[in-house]
Amino acid sequence: MTSYLNVNGRQHAVEADPATPLLYVLRGELGLNGAKYGCGLGQCGACTVMVDGKAVFSCLMPVRALAGRAITTIEGLGDVTTPNPVQQAFQEVQAAQCGYCIAGMIMRAQSLLETNAAPSDEEIRVHMQPNLCRCGTHSRILRAVRSASDKLSLKGSPAGTK
């Protein structure tokens, strides 16, 4: 069955079992690396992407539910030469150890800053709570989100996508 997916502003026709979770379509069919398999149970956030501006677990997101919806992955925020402000903040703070959780962290942070460019520290923690990091990079991740937010709210612009 063909599913039509709008990923990072581009339309894709995907031949796949309509039950396939978005995660496997992104990785297997579209060749995107950002969303990672961590648990497949909606418990770790490694697979976080945005759908219609909200952070979702792509591991539990059947493509059948995605017709007509806007999917954003970390590849849609910016690339190595032009990272978006959130990616840039993570790079500046060196907010990664193994980095396996980081793409999911950036996507969850992005979804916060798009609706609330100047969250409080507490709001950041609460918002990031669903995502796990085993390396203990939390304090740097929080610093990176804080710093992205400070820059964005100074500029008064919402966290931009490419």
């Binding site: 079992d17 309509p18 039950a19 396939t20 979770p21 497949g40 149970l41 591991c59 539990l60 997101m61 059947p62 493509v63 059948r64 539910a65």
Partner: peptide, 9 residues
């Protein structure tokens, strides 16, 4: 389909 993708795990 939704069940197989979202709930079956």
């Amino acid at each position: 389909d939704l069940f197989r993708g979202a709930c079956a795990a």
